[in-house]
């Protein structure tokens, strides 16, 4: 059958091609944050808690790259020292979220009708709660702490990912290659191991990257509301929380930590997409 519309893809508008610029920027950003975690002293210009009281609320300058806060602490150095804790929250929440999502998603897609029905309902009920609301509910029960923040964000984002993973498993399960394996007489465990699991979990790399970025954003939202890590800590959300009081006098105290979070989230998402594309390209 000649399908003129996809005729060698010629008549279709050009697909968006890889923009290596985005890749380079993402890798550079991630590397920078990795250094900030491994050895913050290497790139920080001041101590995270060093007070320069006479230089409080200084706008960004050559000495204080990101400006100073109300006690004259250097914001840049605080951002650098806060990286490890912020990433820890992001990674921790991703771990919680995806473990839960994989568990719920696979039960919903693979188990018998009854269990799948129940778990499907659970996913749908949890999905009817917006992420932030579910996270707030958990904070209300457990009280604010770093552990609460990890679990609140992890559980809050899990239902959405559970739906994605359920969909992935179902589409692998109903695929032509699984039917081909059945007609070759392969056993269920073999089909599960060889086809369904690897194909369903293939997008997981991209999902992990996306989730780390999103988790940091959600966690910082909690901190911004004063429901996360408490202020003297240089954790990014805490920086936002303490900077909030000075919005009218010192914009940099909220804008710059926010920008750092956005940069990390975008870099993680972009990197995830590239990894995903590279995995798929291996087969072309």
């Amino acid at each position: 059958m000649t399908s003129l519309l996809t005729h060698n893809g010629i008549l279709s508008p050009r697909r968006v091609t890889a923009v290596p610029l985005g890749l380079i920027a993402s890798v550079a950003t991630v590397v920078l944050f990795a250094i900030a975690v491994a050895s913050p002293g290497l790139i920080a210009t001041h101590g995270p808690f060093a007070l320069h009281l006479q230089e409080s609320l200084h706008a960004p300058s050559l000495t204080y790259w990101f400006g100073t806060d109300e006690s004259g602490r250097d914001l840049y150095s605080r951002v650098v020292y806060g990286t490890s804790q912020s990433l820890l929250i992001g990674l921790g929440a991703t771990g919680v979220s995806l473990s839960l999502a994989v568990l719920l998603g696979s039960i919903a897609a693979l188990s018998n009708r009854f269990a799948a029905g129940v778990v499907n309902r659970v996913i749908e009920v949890l999905f009817s709660f917006p992420t932030l609301l579910l996270a707030l509910l958990l904070v209300a029960i457990l009280g604010p702490s770093i552990l609460t923040q990890i679990f609140a964000v992890g559980i809050g984002t899990a239902p959405g990912y559970a739906r994605i993973i359920r969909g992935q498993i179902l589409s692998a399960k109903n695929s032509g290659y699984v039917e081909a394996a059945i007609s070759l007489g392969h056993s269920r465990p073999r089909i599960l191991r060889q086809h369904i699991i690897p194909n369903a979990l293939r997008p997981l790399v991209a999902i992990i990257a996306l989730s780390v970025g999103q988790s940091i954003v959600w966690a910082s939202s909690l901190s911004f509301l004063g429901l996360g890590v408490a202020p003297p800590s240089p954790e990014w959300g805490a920086l936002l929380d303490s900077g909030r009081a000075y919005i009218t006098q010192a914009w940099w105290l909220t804008v710059i930590p926010g920008l750092v979070i956005v940069a990390l989230a975008l870099a993680a998402t972009t990197l995830g997409k590239y990894i995903q594309k590279a995995l798929e390209r291996g087969e072309r």
């Binding site: 508008p13 954003v217 909220t254 804008v255 920008l259």
Partner: peptide
């Protein structure tokens, strides 16, 4: 290609913006 790429980069960026930060800006 260029306009489409710009369009989708803006989508992705907008979708990832934290509300508090966007609000402050």
């Amino acid at each position: 290609a260029r306009v489409s790429a710009l369009g989708s980069v803006v989508d992705t960026t907008a979708a990832g913006l934290p509300q508090y930060w966007l609000g402050i800006i």
